[in-house]
Simulated scan of single mutants.
Amino acid sequence: MAEEIGAVGNLLQPTLLADFLHTGAQAAGDTYDFTAKKLESDEVAEIEYIEIFSPNAGWPGEDLLHVVPVIDGHRIEEYVSLSGRYTSNMAPPRLHQMSGPSPLQSNRIVFSFGTPGVEDPFLNTTLKAKKSISIRTRAGDNGITQNYRIRVWGRLYKGEAMLRSVFGDRVYGAEATIEDRNRGKSLSVTKDAVDVSIKNWDTFVGGMKQSKP
C-alpha cells in the first residue's frame, strides 16, 4: 500500500487553484477582499505556492503592503502575512519551474508553504482548503495605482478515493522529529491520528481546524 500511495502522489502535478486580478487604484491603508474561489463538495485543495505579480510601476515599485490568504472564510494574518512589495523580493528574478508543464512566471514573488502529499507534519505545512480560497490585500502608506495579480497554486483532490490514494487511510499518530544538526538539537511531537476524508481535511496540519500536537 505504501508503494501505491507514493506512486500516486508523485504523479500529481501542481495546478492553478485560483487567479485574482485587481485593476485600478487602491488608496493608502485600504484593504481589498477578492471574491472567493469556491470548491465543490467533493473537492479539497492543498496550497503549495502563492505567486504575486506586484504593481511594479518603476523603482522602487508600489506599496502592496500585505497579502493574506483567506482559507474557508478565515483570514490567517496572525500566521501568514506576505509582502507584495517588489523590493522585498529577496531572490533575483528567475523561472520557478515546478515539476508540471506550467512554470511559475519569472520576475515575480513566489512564496512556498511546504511539501504536498506527505504525512510528516514538519514537511506538509501546505495550507488546506476545504470550502474556499481567497485573498485579502492591504495598501501601504503610499497607495497603489497599477494593476496587480495573485495566483494560488497547489493540488486539487477530487473525491475521497483520490485523497486516500495519496495519504492512505490515516495520518499522524506516530512521533515526528525535526533536527538541527548544526546545534545538535531536535524536537519531537506526536499529533493525534486523523482518518483521511474530505470531512476531516481541515484538521490536517495547515487546516483551519488543526489541533495542537
Score class of each variant (00 low, 15 high):
residue 143 G to W: 02
residue 120 D to W: 02
residue 165 S to M: 13
residue 175 E to C: 06
residue 142 N to R: 13
residue 176 A to M: 11
residue 193 A to R: 03
residue 109 I to P: 00
residue 140 G to P: 04
residue 107 N to Q: 15
residue 184 G to F: 09
residue 141 D to G: 05
residue 198 I to L: 15
residue 133 I to M: 08
residue 175 E to L: 08
residue 128 K to I: 14
residue 141 D to W: 05
residue 124 N to F: 08
residue 162 M to K: 15
residue 182 N to K: 12
residue 190 T to P: 03
residue 105 Q to W: 06
residue 198 I to N: 05
residue 111 F to Y: 12
residue 150 I to V: 14
residue 103 P to C: 04
residue 166 V to C: 10
residue 164 R to C: 08
residue 175 E to P: 12
residue 136 R to T: 09
residue 188 S to Q: 10
residue 182 N to E: 14
residue 92 P to K: 13
residue 160 E to W: 00
residue 198 I to W: 12
residue 87 T to V: 12
residue 165 S to W: 01
residue 138 R to M: 14
residue 130 K to Q: 15
residue 155 R to W: 11
residue 179 E to G: 07
residue 143 G to C: 03
residue 112 S to C: 07
residue 164 R to T: 14
residue 193 A to K: 07
residue 171 V to P: 01
residue 154 G to M: 09
residue 121 P to A: 01
residue 169 D to V: 04
residue 134 S to I: 01
residue 103 P to I: 08
residue 113 F to C: 01
residue 162 M to S: 15
residue 159 G to K: 10
residue 169 D to C: 05
residue 144 I to K: 04
residue 123 L to W: 00
residue 161 A to P: 03
residue 102 S to D: 14
residue 163 L to Q: 04
residue 87 T to D: 13
residue 194 V to L: 14
residue 193 A to P: 15
residue 162 M to Y: 09
residue 127 L to R: 06
residue 179 E to K: 15
residue 167 F to C: 08
residue 163 L to C: 02
residue 110 V to F: 05
residue 112 S to P: 02
residue 153 W to C: 08
residue 193 A to I: 10
residue 142 N to C: 10
residue 152 V to C: 07
residue 159 G to R: 14
residue 164 R to M: 09
residue 162 M to N: 14
residue 93 P to Y: 06
residue 174 A to Y: 02
residue 122 F to A: 00
residue 170 R to S: 12
residue 143 G to Y: 05
residue 174 A to Q: 13
residue 143 G to F: 06
